[in-house]
């Protein structure tokens, strides 16, 4: 063991490079000459009236902004897919898991699922009962009692329940994750982890993403079970249906493939409602003011992702 004391004259300013932020497009656009400037350079050799040049400039500027927007979207999408693939690869690597990862995972599931259970069950019972009551009443009014099972399984269990769950989780956990990662980035805490050779993806991101998938499936299952139990009550009250008849209707309407597809959808929702906020959290700059911007952008993108997944899976179902 040795002990040394080194005194130096100048303080080293550490290179503040980021592992994750990849705003190539914006950087490229900022570094190079702007297209309207180029236009001016080339056009000054010709004799053009001021108005003509102005019109050209406006046209080119508009085209450039459209192009930049498309490039930004494409780059963002590409980075997200790349990041998603990286995370998926890590999920299936045993070396990604250790005691620290497991602790974070347990904590995340605790905060996301266990802590939310009382509120979630209350909301499920109130919302689920009301919704199922309204649907049953409407079916009876329309004389479509025969389609009770189809509506219950095809609409409520496979469509409404995942949507309700994902919205609840997004509002509660995805926003928290987004803010948490953004704050860590601003506070240089990610650098600390890197300095101690802790893989940020393995330690911070993987448990959160797995937690998103697990919590989503767990909470969806609980919500569906609550809904189906509400259904027993309402089918008895509104249709005067026995529990056996209700179970039989459910069994007739239940499709194994649809249920498995819904569970996959929940896992996908869980994956993206944590991955996207993490990505936007990591894109935060070193300023505190960038945190709300990152959170709001992340949330908007999460909702877009939810809609895209929902639409894609509906198309899959229809096909």
């Amino acid at each position: 063991m040795s002990f040394k004391c080194i005194i130096f004259n100048t303080c080293v300013k550490y290179n503040d490079s980021s592992l994750f932020v990849n705003d190539n497009v914006a950087d490229t656009a900022d570094r190079g000459l702007q297209f309207p400037d180029l236009c001016y350079k080339h056009l000054t050799s010709f004799v053009f009236s001021h108005n003509t040049i102005k019109k050209y400039w406006l046209l080119m500027a508009s085209l450039e902004s459209i192009g930049r927007f498309i490039l930004q979207i494409t780059a963002s999408l590409r980075d997200t897919i790349y990041f998603a693939l990286l995370v998926i690869t890590r999920i299936f690597q045993l070396s990604s898991y250790n005691s620290a990862t497991r602790t974070v995972l347990v904590n995340q599931i605790y905060f996301t699922s266990v802590q939310i259970i009382p509120a979630f069950l209350t909301a499920s019972i109130i919302f689920g009962s009301l919704f199922i009551g309204i649907v049953f009443h409407a079916l009876k009014g329309l004389g479509l009692s025969d389609y009770l099972g189809n509506v219950l399984m095809g609409l409520i269990v496979t469509e409404i329940s995942p949507l309700f769950t994902v919205l609840l989780l997004t509002l509660r956990s995805a926003s928290a994750i987004n803010a948490e990662i953004a704050v860590m980035k601003v506070n240089n805490e990610l650098h600390s982890l890197e300095a101690f050779r802790i893989d940020v993806i393995n330690y911070l991101l993987l448990p959160r993403i797995i937690n998103g998938m697990v919590s989503m499936v767990l909470l969806y299952s609980l919500f569906s079970i609550v809904l189906l139990i509400s259904g027993i009550v309402f089918s008895g009250v509104i249709f005067g249906m026995s529990m056996d008849a209700y179970t039989n209707i459910l069994l007739n309407s239940a499709n194994f493939y649809d249920i498995v597809l819904t569970l996959v959808k929940c896992a996908l929702f869980g994956f993206f409602i944590t991955l996207i906020p993490i990505r936007f959290g990591l894109r935060t700059s070193d300023e505190l003011t960038s945190i709300p911007v990152a959170v709001s952008s992340g949330m908007v993108n999460v909702f877009a992702a939810i809609i895209i997944i929902e639409v894609l899976l509906l198309i899959t179902k229809i096909i």
Binding site: V106, N107, I109, S113, V114, V214
Partner: peptide, 16 residues
Amino acid sequence: REFKVGFLVVFTAILL
């Protein structure tokens, strides 16, 4: 905390 998480996961998984 671990017990609570474990219970929720196992209970829901069994139910499912």
